[in-house]
Design a protein around this nucleic acid. Structure first.
Lengths: 332, 332
DNA sequence: ATGAAAGCGCTAACAG
DNA sequence: CTGTTAGCGCTTTCAT
């Protein structure tokens, strides 16, 4: 390899070079025999691109985010797409409580684009996101929507999803339907609340709109709110904003001798694995989290390739999944 | 900031510089006001360190790894520790079927150390890992053990765990216990098989060692193997190598009118969320996945700091978790 | 201690 | 089209 600089070697790998195939093969072979691997740090540094897509996750010590169905499904989708696109997936933890500074990841050149998961709606968050957008840093929010802002987003139709769930209860004959929601700081929760209210209204049941309870989207919170929810007025149907809370609620119901499904109908949200494993199996609203994760990567990669046409906002379909116990295993 | 080169600015950030506090503050303030962020690519390149710890996951299109309880818990632990240690977490997907080439990540300078999850025992895998070890690249296998090799590993006591599970069944009065295992390519499975056999032997039940069935660690595989498992000889207890298979199995049992827990005792493995959500709640072997993930990062970080004392092999404790329905929610 | 300069391994721009 | 060269923004080394 005398006279051939390493720099020359790496150039050979790039596709736009229309070198003679013969030469190319020779160099490639030489590279392999010399155990030469291009230094990607040097490459990225010279190109001023990190080659990473950052996935920004809220981080609370002790909260096991990867174990949350909705996160893990989105991550599955992101991982699949990133792998295919040839980028690397850098996980970044945004400590909850710490001041938001998304732009630091871009300015320090850690990432070329960001996918932001689990964003809450707050003035600081909005400021931080506006900063990104104004600086033209490619980013995408998944399963979140900021009303009135022009951010790139891949969301799902949560108003419709919730509407379908409540309508399902009504069609089963429920007349007095409670809604167990998650924190309203998530646009999801707000959307689902709207769906609930609209469904009641459209079916002439709006007299009881105040039957809204709140948990933290955790199993425990569903369990805990159960006593409150089941104590006063008797509901004949409960729509729950996610499956984990629904399962916690059902556990408490069973302890109290109330049969979920028979005595009080329950419908969940997310179509998580758990909704098929619990007993009775939980009808639930399916959200295409996997697809949403994939889609976000594709959009960002497009945007990196063609920095025009910057804004994209997409709302993917949800659909109610009615789960009879006999269907359980066809679901997978 | 006239006269002060950018290089100087970034030097001020490093800790070993015993600059006067006053000056330091001034430069920091100047840096902030100028919106200066050090370019980590340049830094890493100059230091010949990527700042990344790679997490290598097996990857099969369509298989949603993040949704597997055991992976997600380990990832939670890894994430927590990496965040604390100031490294970045780079997710790398090892396509199943593709030739193993772990060293490329090191040689291309993508990562400083690697955590390898879900490794199967095969000659190619062993070769690939030996290559890493011989080249002194820091890596750590989590929840996996290669017998006869000197690799860095954080494993759990799966023989003991399985032994405890089977013993639990025996203590409940079971006399004829089947074992539903996962693929033997995972050291876990082999360990659990040993625990099962040993427990039978120690309790004078070794006449039926052949009652071993195999699934793929998935819910569906547990469901499918059920007919086979329940058709011939009648077992009064079934130990299952993970919760998902156990839940699938129980679903099928219920469909067949067999009451899990009452007619045939079932015990699971992993202590996953699902084991507390299913009905009846599943007694299961708890494995400290989260801690194992954390530990692997700490070990690697130590090793990066002090490249001597390279080998570490740790086996964390497992423990049987007997879940009465009343305990369900105290578990969390 | 402080400042200047070399160099990390590539890419990109530019000559030949 | 091929080969040379100047950076990329830091760290490290070396004079001062």
């Amino acid at each position: 390899m005398a006279g051939v600089s390493e720099a020359t070697v790496s150039r050979v790998f790039s596709e736009q070079d229309a070198v003679k195939e013969h030469t190319k093969q020779k160099v490639l072979a030489a590279a392999k025999s010399l155990n030469y691997y291009p230094n990607v740090m040097a490459k990225n540094f010279a190109k001023r691109k990190s080659g990473n897509i950052g996935v920004i996750l809220p981080y609370l010590p002790k909260v096991k985010l990867f174990s949350v169905y909705y996160f893990s499904e989105i991550l599955n989708g992101i991982g699949e797409a990133i792998e295919k696109e040839g980028y690397d997936m850098l996980l970044l933890f945004q400590r909850v409580g710490q001041p938001y500074d998304y732009k630091k990841y871009f300015l320090s050149h850690k990432i070329d684009a960001a996918i932001i998961l689990g964003a809450k709606d707050s003035p600081e968050e909005r400021d931080s996101l506006r900063e990104l957008r104004d600086a033209d840093f490619p980013f995408c929010l998944v399963n979140q929507h900021f009303d009135g802002e022009q951010f790139c987003e891949i969301d799902a139709e949560h108003v419709a999803g919730s509407y379908a769930a409540v309508t399902h209860l009504i069609e089963q004959g429920c007349q007095n339907i409670a809604f167990l929601n998650g924190p309203l700081a998530y646009s999801n929760s707000l959307d689902r609340l709207k769906g609930y209210q609209k469904a009641l209204q459209d079916h002439g049941l709006s007299g009881q709109e105040q039957a809204v309870f709140y948990g933290q989207y955790s199993l425990t919170s569903g369990y805990k709110v159960a006593d409150d929810l089941l104590s006063g007025q008797l509901y004949d149907g409960i729509a729950v904003a996610n499956d984990r809370m629904a399962i916690g609620l059902m556990q408490r119901m069973k302890e109290l001798g109330i049969k979920p499904g028979a005595d009080i109908a329950v419908v969940g949200y997310d179509d998580s694995d758990a909704s098929a494993m619990c007993d009775p199996a939980l009808s639930s609203v399916h959200v295409p989290f996997f697809e949403m994760g994939k889609r976000s990567v594709q959009r960002l990669v497009n945007q990196l390739a063609a920095p025009h046409m910057k804004l994209f906002q997409e709302k993917l379909e949800t659909r109610l999944l009615i789960r009879e116990s006999s269907q359980r295993n066809q679901v997978k």
